[in-house]
Structure formats: C-alpha cells, structure tokens
Design a protein around this nucleic acid. Structure first.
Length: 423
RNA sequence: GGACAGAUGGCCGAGUGGUCGAAGGCACCUGACUCGAAAUCAGGCAUACCGGGAACGGUAUCGUAGGUUCGAAUCCUACUCUGUCCGCCA
C-alpha cells in the first residue's frame, strides 16, 4: 500500500499518476478523512496527556483524595475511550481505502491503456520455421496420449489436466532444471506452504481487492491456496528487520491455484490457463537504491532459462494500463508459440518498491545502527512450468507429431530425448 | 483432539496493579586506552505518530482482540502461536 503521509502530501500528483493506470479509482473521500484523523489525533492525545498527568497525581494522593477525584477521572476516561473509538473507525476507513489503491507506476513506465501500448525491450532467437503447419500443444499432447483433459474434467472440472508418461516426467524435469539453474546463481531454494493466511495474502496485495481470484478453504480455519509462491516467500520475512546483507534471493517451486474469475472463455483449450499449475518463482529483497538494477538482473535470470532451452522469446515493458496492482514496474517475458502463431507470457518480473514491504512490515538497516527502513520486494516467474512445457511441445514438434526435447533437459530425463506416442 | 506451561526491545531475559518504555546481559555505535587489534572503562542504543530549527516535549505500543479499574506488561475473557505430555495419523 502507499504511504499515508505521502499520499496526503502529494495528493494531486499521486491521483494523476494512478489515473494513468486506468480503471476506476475513487479517492475523493481521502483528504477529508485524513484531515479529520489528524484533528482527532491532536484532541485525543491532549486528553490522554491530561489523563496521564492526573493519574500520576492520583497515585501519590491520599486514599480520601483518590476517592474524591475518581469520579472526574472516570468521566475523562470514558470520554477518551469514546474518542479513541472514533479515531479507530476513521483509521480503518482510511486503511480500507488505501488497501484498494494500486501502486504508483515508476517514472520509467510508459503511459498506456492496454497491452497494445507495451514496449518490446529486446528479443532473443528467431522464430523456428516449419515445412508443415505447426500444431497447438494440446493437439500434440492428446495425439501422443500424454495429455488428458477429458478425464481431468471428469475428476476436477474445467481448466485441469492430467499429464501422463514422459510428459509428466518432462514437467518434473523442468522443475529440477530451473531450480538448479537459479540456485547456482545464488538464489536460496525454499519449499513454501501452499496454504496461507489472510494476513499473508494481504501482505503481498492479493487481498482485500482480489478475493474472487483466490481459492479458499471452508471450515473454521480460513486459509487461502497460494496463487503464486510470491505470497509465502515474500511473507517469509514479514514483520522482520533484515540484518543480512541485501539483496536476499530466493527461488521456490510451488503449485499455484487461481480461480480465474473473469477469465471468461479465454484460453479454454490447452494448458495455458489452468486453475492449478506449477511455477518456479524468484523473489528478492533489495535496497531501494538497487531494486531497479535487481529487477533487470532478475529478468535476465528468468530469460536465461529460455535461452538454455533454445526458446525464442522477447522481453516486454508493461505500460501503466497493463501492470499488476502492486507493481512499480513490470517486465513480461513472452515465449514464441508456433502452434498459436503468437508470443505468450511465460514470466512476469516486477519491482514492487516498498508497496508490499509496507503491508507486510519488512524492513532493513542501510548501515549498522541506522533506523530501519522498508525494503523493496521483487519477484518474477522463473518460469511458469506449464507454459514452458507448452513452448517445448510447440517449438520442438516434428511433422509426425513427435517432439524433440531440448538438450539442456536430457540429464533430467533419464535418457528420454523426445516425446513419442505412449506405448 | 485432551491436559499443562508460555508469548516482554535486534537477540536473551527480569518484571504480579501506580514511581515501568520497561532491570540485567548480548549485539551494535561513539569516545578513552593501543602502533593497531583484543580485553577493559565511560557514554549511547526500540518503533510509529504529533509539535519544534534543534535540544527536547507529548501520545501510543510488553502475541492479537475485548473487558475490569481512577490507573494494566501485571487481573479477567476469547483467539492466535510456541513448548511439553497423552491420543491419533502420512
């Protein structure tokens, strides 16, 4: 969330820059609430000071005197309690308001309304050429008998899949391959919980605004299925003052669960948009003056996976209108899918500035003995496993429907170098 | 799931109704000593907000939320988490 004082101080500028994100945003109540809060604060604090003073006197007074003045104190106390209640209600209103306000985009983010206004930053590799019409991944997978949506629908409904045989093995291989690549670069592997509290979801910004997108447990213990490992891994350091030198770098494999509310009929076929998918996530905690450089490095680390797999891709800088709620600046990595004849997002790398750190209370000291200040948090997919698998299928396909697998994965596949029909 | 114990500053830990933002220790910072370091000594050292140029002053915060009381770290209730024992279980 944004800094309360900062919003109050630079109200018009903040509103102007938030407007560039598009979407409805009503901050009209903010200033009045903020002024009223300030006024009440002053009043309450003065009353509290009075109470504390009288109390000190009372403590030293004789029993008789104490009895006499107790009634006055009681009146004062209950008046204060009343005001404190009002103040708390105000505070809650303001917080609720701010919780629903997205991050202010960084200066370097291009202003735009939709994905059409994103900027391609760089491209790696070239589109592979085919002497036949390339198929989509689900056709290939189903024809090889390695991918089963029908039975998944029977068991779980739409947007689920069974992977079978070597395709399931490929999924596992991708996980290990990616984790090994990242840990070799100094990312510490974390295997996080997949169910998290409301507080954790609020800390990273999924709640309160996007509750409809999340799966939630029933029963007296309310827990949320993580939509990304970002949630448990970022909150790993919630309420902490980091003492170790920054940046802290983590990578984490986890399943991700998304309700995909509002996705409507989008990407109904194939593995591209599922209620459950696997992802290796990169998370960093960085110093504010270094976070933008760390974002570039993180994005490169994610790209490198695609390079090692030989997959044609490009890096896109999202415009103000296409960015996620909590983000200060986001690069998407898009991989080429010949079957769909398009680039598809396979990773989203963001610098959140202090937006999440303020919610989750994650701080650090610039130098020993300094006052703690908020860290900057970053994360990015490194990469989405399911979509990587899609890219491998579509890019590696042969005319006969078999698929050649990237050499980098061979050590992880125990001798399997291509996908062929099951049995 | 049942029983008991506990939750205090960056860390450890004392504190059972007022003089407690909180002893003591560790860590850290400054200074003295030293060629330098260690050791030792002296001082400093929570967070947020408000006022002030600053010194400083005020307010809140002792797991969370309520309650009792003139007054709560301290008493009461609920919840959360941790530990130990019992039961159950992959």
């Amino acid at each position: 969330m944004l800094d309360l004082k900062d919003v109050a101080k630079n109200f018009d500028a903040v509103v102007a820059r938030l407007t560039a994100r598009g979407g409805a945003l009503d901050l009209s109540a903010f200033q009045a609430l903020f002024a009223e809060r300030k006024r009440l604060y002053t009043v309450v604090e003065a009353e509290q000071a009075k109470r504390n003073k009288l109390n000190d006197e009372l403590a030293k007074a004789s029993p008789d005197e104490r009895k006499q003045r107790a009634a006055d104190m009681k009146a004062l106390s209950s008046a204060i309690k009343d005001q404190e209640g009002q103040l708390k209600a105000l505070e809650e209103k303001l917080t609720t308001l701010l919780y629903d306000v997205p991050n202010v985009p960084d200066e370097s983010v291009p202003v735009g309304a939709s994905a059409d206004d994103n900027t391609v930053v760089r491209t790696w590799g070239e589109k592979p050429t085919f002497l036949f019409t390339p198929k989509q991944h689900f056709e290939l997978g189903e024809q090889l008998g390695l991918l089963d949506f029908e039975r998944a629908a029977k068991v779980s409904g739409s947007r689920f899949a069974f992977l079978k045989g070597d395709l399931a093995k490929l999924e596992r291989a991708l996980v290990s391959f990616m984790i090994d690549q990242h840990t070799a670069k100094g990312y510490v592997e974390l295997l996080p919980p997949y169910l998290v509290t409301r507080a954790a979801m609020t800390g990273t910004g999924q709640l309160p605004k996007f509750e409809a997108d999340a799966f939630k447990t029933v029963g007296e213990h309310e827990l949320f299925l993580i939509p990304t490992a970002e949630v448990p891994v970022t909150n790993y350091h919630a309420d902490e003052i980091l003492e170790a030198p920054l940046p802290l770098k983590y990578c984490a494999f986890s399943p991700c669960f998304r309700a995909e509310a509002g996705a409507g009929g989008k990407d109904t076929r194939g593995l591209v948009r599922m209620h459950q998918f696997h992802k290796v996530e990169l998370v960093k905690f960085a110093r504010p003056d270094q976070s933008m450089a760390e974002l570039d490095a993180l994005t490169k680390d994610a790209c490198e996976i695609l390079e090692k797999l030989g997959l044609h891709h490009r890096v896109v800088l999202l415009c103000t209108g296409d960015m996620g709620f909590s983000s200060l600046k986001t690069f998407d990595i898009e991989v080429w899918l010949p079957g769909q004849n398009t680039f598809r997002e396979i990773s989203s790398c963001s610098n959140f500035g202090d937006f999440q750190a303020r919610r989750a209370k994650i701080r650090f000291r610039q130098n020993k003995g300094d006052k703690p200040q908020l860290v900057h948090t970053l994360n990015g997919s490194g990469l989405a496993i399911g979509r990587t698998l899609v890219a491998i299928l579509e890019n590696g396909q042969r005319e006969d429907g078999t698929v050649k697998l990237p050499e980098a994965l061979w050590p992880y596949l125990g001798g399997t170098k291509e996908l062929t029909a099951l049995r």
